[in-house]
């Protein structure tokens, strides 16, 4: 017994390692095993788990939405979805990984506007055309907020002050070239005001706003709603076509006269040579998941808008969005 104890210990050490290794190891092996894809013509899809690459960290908005959809969609798919976070370089790491996989539908990416921002920033040398759309799942409005005791009651007031005091107003966003940064710049250009855009890490802009280090924050609406409800932060505007359910008194940017969309979208994409039949199957699965009641409830908790869009429409949408993003990034001087 004594003799075996060390070995037992080692084995017990290795078990969790395998657990971690396997969740990833399986799929790592998957692209290499080409044998089973030989009879692809018949479209026997899927015969093994489908891996979804998430570009951002576990527990973040993107990650939670994908995991939920994967959970609901699995049943319909008949095979498990495996969610893997491949983070880094504003999404470029994950996009690069998926791009290099076999275009057989077993590797797809949970995408967003980051496909455009990462490309135009110069983080990767390929753009949205490397992928084809499967389905859009949600849209997230961006919010512009000030502290509850700030003197500005409307966006017009804030920027009127900013115009009188150039370089004085500081607006926090979640990082240079992030979607919130683009939104902040678009709005300040719209008013023609000279403000300082301060890049923060994810979520930290809210903390800086409460700590009075900045005058306003541009954040996803979902990220500030708890402060709004508590009365510590005042929303001045949200992006998107219509006002948000959680704050019906807050006007949209359109109502302020800004002509543009500026809404974050989240979608699934596959490498561009993925066969139509496979895309259709996945599209069907995500349509089922996105339109389920379970997801509707989930989205409400998260504060995001359920917004399904099919593959074809999505491709057009992304092309247009990419052009818009390019223009904005040109304005900031970030375009490479």
């Amino acid at each position: 017994m004594k003799r075996w104890l060390p070995l037992l210990l080692i084995i017990s050490l290795l078990v969790p390692a395998l657990l971690v290794g396997c969740t990833s190891g399986d799929q790592e092996a998957a692209p290499g095993t080409n044998g089973e894809e030989a009879d692809e013509k018949k479209i026997d899809f899927p015969t093994k788990p489908v891996e979804i690459t998430v570009l951002f960290g576990a527990g973040g908005g993107q990650d939670l939405i994908v995991r939920k959809l994967a959970e609901i969609g699995e049943e319909k798919l008949g095979q498990p979805f495996v969610v893997v976070n491949r983070t880094g370089a504003g999404g470029a790491v994950g996009y690069t990984y998926v791009k290099d996989q076999k275009p057989d539908g077993y590797n797809i990416v949970a995408s967003s506007n980051s496909i455009s921002t990462a490309y135009h920033k110069g983080n990767m040398d390929f753009d949205y055309r490397t992928f084809r759309g499967i389905a859009m799942v949600v849209k997230e409005p961006v919010s512009i907020a000030v502290k509850a005791d700030a003197p500005w009651k409307t966006l017009d007031e804030l920027f009127a002050y900013a115009k009188e005091h150039p370089g004085e107003i500081k607006i926090g966003n979640s990082g240079v070239g992030s979607f919130t940064h683009l939104t902040g710049v678009a709005v300040s250009k719209f008013y023609g005001a000279d403000v300082v855009h301060v890049p923060f890490g994810k979520g930290l802009a809210v903390s800086a706003l409460l700590g009075e280090k900045i005058d306003a924050s541009v954040q996803l609406a979902a990220e500030v709603m708890n402060q709004v409800e508590a009365g510590t932060v005042r929303l001045l505007a949200v992006t998107g076509d219509k006002r948000i359910e959680a704050a019906p008194d807050v006007p949209t940017l359109k109502e302020y006269g800004y002509d543009g969309n500026l809404t974050l979208y989240r979608s699934f994409h596959a490498p561009k040579d993925t066969p139509d039949e496979v895309i259709a199957i996945l599209e069907e699965v995500f349509k089922y998941a996105v339109e389920s009641e379970e997801f509707a409830e989930f989205a409400k908790e998260l504060g995001v808008q359920v917004s399904f869009m099919g593959a074809e429409e999505l491709d057009e949408f992304v092309a247009k969005d990419d052009a818009d993003t390019a223009r904005l990034m040109e304005l900031i001087g970030l375009k490479k």
């Binding site: 960290g57 576990a58 527990g59 973040g60 908005g61 990650d63 939670l64 939920k68 994810k202 979520g203 930290l204 809210v206 903390s207 409460l210 709603m225 708890n226 402060q227 409800e229 508590a230 009365g231 510590t232 989930f298 908790e301 998260l302």
Partner: peptide, 27 residues
């Protein structure tokens, strides 16, 4: 405040949000 202090609490925040609990002053 609903602001995560480190990566582990960031994941925790996500878990709270999906259960309809929005950490913050009102929690």
């Amino acid at each position: 405040l609903g602001i995560p202090g480190d990566p582990a609490t960031a994941i925790l925040l996500g878990a709270l949000v999906i259960h309809g609990l929005r950490p913050g002053p009102l929690l």
